[in-house]
Design a binder for these strands. Structure first.
Length: 439
RNA sequence: GCCCUGGUAGUAUAGUCCGGUCUAGUAUAGGCGGCUGUCGCCCGCCCGACCCGGGUUCAAGUCCCGGCCAGGGCGCCA
């Protein structure tokens, strides 16, 4: 087939911007054929772009031969351009259609697509991920990532407003001994290096200069996880703030979550409708449950967890039934949290770490950090880590480390909350797990 | 990594328990033809599949063993 070049054609409108009151106007539209419904004497072509769809109507007897023969060959997913006249009509749901004067075909598509893009026969996640580029063309998938985009935009704006500076810490790191999570090794010239699992140590060091920093970026964990919440590569939104405590950054966090819910509700009405999902804007402050309270709540539900033990996934599910929306868990046993979380001054058994839960899912974890080199070294040893491996990080504590606190949001999990998706793979463009490395 | 469940046309499924008219059914997609107001268009015809390897049996999509893959759950996740 002879393909057309774009030439001097430029888009005048997206599909959704063509309105009935434009009756008689000429428009140039670009997009993809979503569906062709041919009734014999009249043919309907549904043109899709990233904003939505519009009907191109081809009445056989009242249209030029060239347009007709172009429209004869159109199939699903062909990339096309249409120059035509807007017509107000009460025969389409949107009250408008376009009668083409000229059609350009930019590229064709395979006739038998690997997934049904009209949504009549829903393909399984695995099949869809194998054909992700095509899968993402569907309105529902676009809606998920538009919501994610809106959320990240809202978060950035909120943090900028509060005086945070956006930073970029290394993805390639030298030491494999930062803690428990398994790291991916990489070849680094003649040396062995690793992909970063978190910006934790760097962002702490950066509060000494920038005071309030945040970072949005991918991190890597080589865990054996096989769940709907974990990926080997995930996007984390990290903040760290000088001269603050856990309570300060918790207040920041709950307002941020509320803000994101409001903004997404306001800006993504169409996308939420597409996903048949609604977001309830939470009241602040969020509930603050102590670890102790959580054990009591669980005990009442018949789930016994001895003090000092971590809360298992099934226990979190039970907890999520009692507290279905947002809540903090605070006052964790010090030994259950990372070495850099500050123990309470008056009761070192408990620490100033917190988790922000959404039902049974941990959305955010954070806390007051240890600012004393001496205490940090002690905590490293208590967690069977070698202070020698943290030498360059510990050195920063000789230069005036302020009291500080911070947290990290899992962007995927936040997007699950905002879109109602049950598997983190659904809200990740190209998910990576132990079994999937392509596409 | 462990446990459970599953793997049938491009996609989604029925059939497997209890082996034999399964020459494998249906929907959707795709091909051809028809149709002037569809919007999950409709109508007719056509195309297309039992994950791989081994075993049991007269006979295996169906039962057994191994492998691979997927989904769910658990664990892991400073």
């Amino acid at each position: 087939m002879r393909l057309d070049s774009i030439g001097d054609w430029r888009r005048t409108h997206h599909s959704v911007d063509v309105k009935p009151e434009m009756d008689g106007e000429e428009v140039t539209l670009f997009g993809w054929v979503q569906e062709v419904r041919d009734l014999g004497g009249i043919r309907f072509i549904i043109l899709q772009d990233r904003e939505g769809t519009i009907q191109i109507t081809v009445p056989r007897k009242r249209i030029g031969n060239e347009v007709l023969s172009k429209s004869d060959v159109l199939q699903k997913r062909y990339s096309i351009g249409v120059e035509g006249i807007v017509k107000k009509t009460d025969m389409t749901p949107r009250g408008v259609e376009v009668i083409p004067k000229e059609i350009k075909i930019f590229s064709t598509a395979t006739p038998r697509l690997p997934i049904d893009i009209t949504g009549k026969t829903l393909a399984n996640l695995d099949v869809r991920l194998d054909a992700r580029a095509l899968d993402l063309c569907q309105e529902e998938k676009i809606a998920v990532f538009k919501i994610q985009h809106t959320a990240v935009d809202a978060i950035r704006n909120f943090l900028f407003e509060k005086g945070f500076i956006e930073v970029h810490t290394p993805r390639i790191i030298a030491s494999a001994t930062e803690g428990g999570a398994a790291l991916f090794p990489v070849e680094y010239f003649e040396r062995k290096a690793f992909l970063a699992q978190s910006p934790q140590l760097y962002k702490e060091e950066l509060v000494m200069s920038f005071e309030k920093v945040f970072e949005v970026g991918p991190f890597f964990r080589a865990e054996e996880s096989h769940t709907g919440l974990h990926l080997s590569e995930f996007v984390s939104i990290d903040i760290e703030q000088a001269f603050s405590t856990a309570e300060d950054v918790m207040q920041l966090l709950e307002r941020l979550i509320q803000h994101v819910c409001k903004v997404v509700n306001r800006k993504c009405k169409k996308e939420l409708a597409t996903l048949k999902h609604s977001i309830e804007v939470p009241e602040v402050p969020f509930k603050r449950l102590r670890y102790e309270d959580v054990l009591q709540d669980l005990k009442r539900e018949g789930v016994e967890i001895p003090w000092g033990e971590d809360i298992s996934t099934p226990a979190f599910r039970t907890l999520g039934e009692i507290h279905p929306y947002f809540y903090f868990i605070v006052d964790w046993p010090t030994d259950l949290k990372a070495f850099y979380i500050k123990p309470h001054d008056d009761n070192p058994e408990l620490c100033e770490g917190f988790d922000l839960m959404w039902g049974w899912i941990e959305l955010v974890s954070g806390g007051t950090r240890i600012a004393s080199k001496e205490l940090l070294t002690k905590r490293l040893k208590e967690q069977d880590l070698n202070p020698e491996s943290f030498k360059s990080h510990l050195q920063a504590f000789d230069y005036g480390m302020p009291p500080h606190a911070g947290w990290a949001i899992g962007l995927g999990r936040l997007t699950m909350m905002l879109t109602g998706k049950k598997n983190i793979r659904e809200v990740t463009l190209y998910p990576r797990d132990k079994f999937r490395l392509t596409p």
